[in-house]
Design a protein around this nucleic acid. Sequence first.
DNA 1: CGTGGGCCTGTCTA
DNA 2: ATAGACAGGCCCA
Length: 250
Amino acid sequence: MKVRQVEGEIEYVNADEKFVNHYFGLEDDLQVIAESINKDAHVSRALEAYWGLRLIRQDPWECLISYICATYKSIPAIKHMLNNMAQKFGEKQVLDGNNFYTFPECKALAAATEQDLIGCGLGYRAKYVLTTAKKIREDNFDFEALRKLPYLETKKVLMQFSGVGAKVADCVLLFSLGKSEAFPVDVWVKRVILNHYGEKLSPEVLQRIEKSESLSTGDYERLNRFGRSYFGKYAGYAQEYLYHYERITV
DNA sequence: CGTGGGCCTGTCTA
DNA sequence: ATAGACAGGCCCA
């Protein structure tokens, strides 16, 4: 499948238009979403600066494993790891004479050894990926069933997997399970909140997260809850715009 | 039940 | 060039 964007127009080259629209969130009504999350001048600036930014709908399995791998890693390093895994455990596809590798199936990773995965550069994450893949296979786990559950319940289920804490769970909920109220708090979102929403938190909490490098479980919950209650049912979209704005612009 | 320390290793900077 | 810091957090004590 091949698709590209040229001058704001999307070209569907041998691609399933319906799939592409769904995958890139093109069906989402940005006007409605923007009205819903446009609570203050700062998020308003972010919306204007990156108008058109949307949430993708990844495959939940792929999303889960990718974010397990993403912990405590830089983005280039994450890409590298995922490429290694795809080459070693994915299926080869040829398009226009170029080789590509699909994201590995659960079956393939469950059959891997820890050393295989360490060889892909996963480090200590190898154990998490392996344990999670095996559990999904043993339980015959159904990601689709999660779509019917409410946000908090779904999050609890995901957090039972090895290597999945609140942040990873929130990312999977947002980017693959359609839970638009999920509000992942990573280091960048933490900076957003410190720099622009400090007055929304209690002074004690504010002071604590300012001086600490990492986020405790409790403080993650507090920032996450702030995002969801302040921005509402499309908090995840607010998160995306604010995150992007903080990374690129500020 | 909440909190702090340790962690594989690829990238980037000094 | 090569060492050292840091990275889209999680687990365990």
